[in-house]
């Protein structure tokens, strides 16, 4: 199991009357989710809460450590881990959609979902919408999500639609969201995880105010909890028009595989001698 230090923080901001963001941290199964809700006069908050809650319950049921049969994992079971995560998001989508159809006050609600799932030395992320996921590794930052906004998919816009939206508007128009439609397409990333990696999940209330380089510089300096607080404060200082939510996850140590001791080394000697004699070929 990967050991982590994590913290999350959510702030209503200075302008909005309600906090439509929500987040989930479950260190025991290694699940971290940020959801940024929208729609209706109370729908946004309902959608994001429902998304995080559903994913938490669903993943807890399928991935709790006690239920995990074996830790010696192959590539195919990692694919399974991705499926657990995607299943959770699909279930959330179904629940939100059903409720939005049933309940008048929630009509048309939806939410973004950005999720991180740590499993067997792998970082698995999945996202729908525009909530960023950053990976900070050895001083360099990169993104682990696909923004589903018109701005990002601008190249796909035909001539007839050009000039219809200003660039700043295009950054706020989502092309996908959880709970809007019965069907959902989710983008995901799977990549090996290393000690000292830091993963930051946030809502666009933060990413709109603080550049990813600034995020990187801030999270390295302090522990997860202080970093969350500092990031939120900075976003609010710079306007805070939107809700601000952030989760910081620091990888303290990778999942330790059983290391071969001296005996193992000695047993490997004949193989080594064999390889010296040129008996083996690399592929």
């Amino acid at each position: 199991m990967i050991r982590v230090q994590s913290a999350g923080y959510s702030d209503i901001g200075k302008v909005r009357k309600a906090n439509e963001d929500s987040f989930l941290i479950n260190e025991s199964i290694g699940l971290f989710v940020v959801a940024d809700g929208m729609g209706g006069h109370r729908g946004g908050a309902v959608a994001s809460r429902l998304a995080t809650k559903t994913m938490g319950t669903c993943m807890e049921a399928t991935c709790s450590p006690a239920l995990k049969p074996d830790t010696s994992k192959a590539e195919d079971s990692r694919a399974e881990d991705i499926n657990h995560l995607l299943k959770g998001i699909h279930l959330a989508n179904k629940k939100i959609y059903t409720l939005s159809v049933k309940d008048e006050s929630c009509r048309g609600m939806g939410t973004t979902v950005s999720a991180l799932f740590l499993s067997d030395n792998f970082i698995i992320t999945a996202n729908v919408g525009d909530s960023p996921i950053y990976l900070l590794r050895n001083g360099e930052i990169e993104t682990l999500y696909t923004p589903h906004t018109l701005l990002h998919e601008r190249k796909k816009i035909p001539k007839s639609m050009e000039g219809r939206f200003s660039p700043s508007k295009m950054a706020h128009i989502l092309t996908r969201a959880v709970g809007i439609h019965q069907h959902l397409r989710i983008d995901h990333v799977k990549t090996p995880c290393f000690k000292d990696d830091i993963i930051v999940l946030c809502s666009d209330g933060l990413s709109g105010k603080v550049t990813k380089e600034e995020v990187g510089a801030l999270v390295v300096k302090s522990d997860a909890e202080t970093a969350c607080k500092n990031l939120t404060d900075l976003a609010i200082e710079r306007g805070g028009e939107d809700n601000v939510t952030v989760i910081v996850v620091k990888i303290l140590s990778e999942g330790v595989k059983p290391t071969k001791g001296l005996l193992g080394r000695l047993l490997a000697l004949p193989i080594w001698i064999g390889s010296c004699l040129g008996g083996k070929r690399s592929t």
Binding site: D36, I173, R176, A177
Partner: peptide, 21 residues
Amino acid sequence: TSAMPGDPGPKHTMFMESELY
């Protein structure tokens, strides 16, 4: 927009109807 009838304002996130998209 799924947010409310009409445009909710420049800073608000809204969803683009999948049909249109």
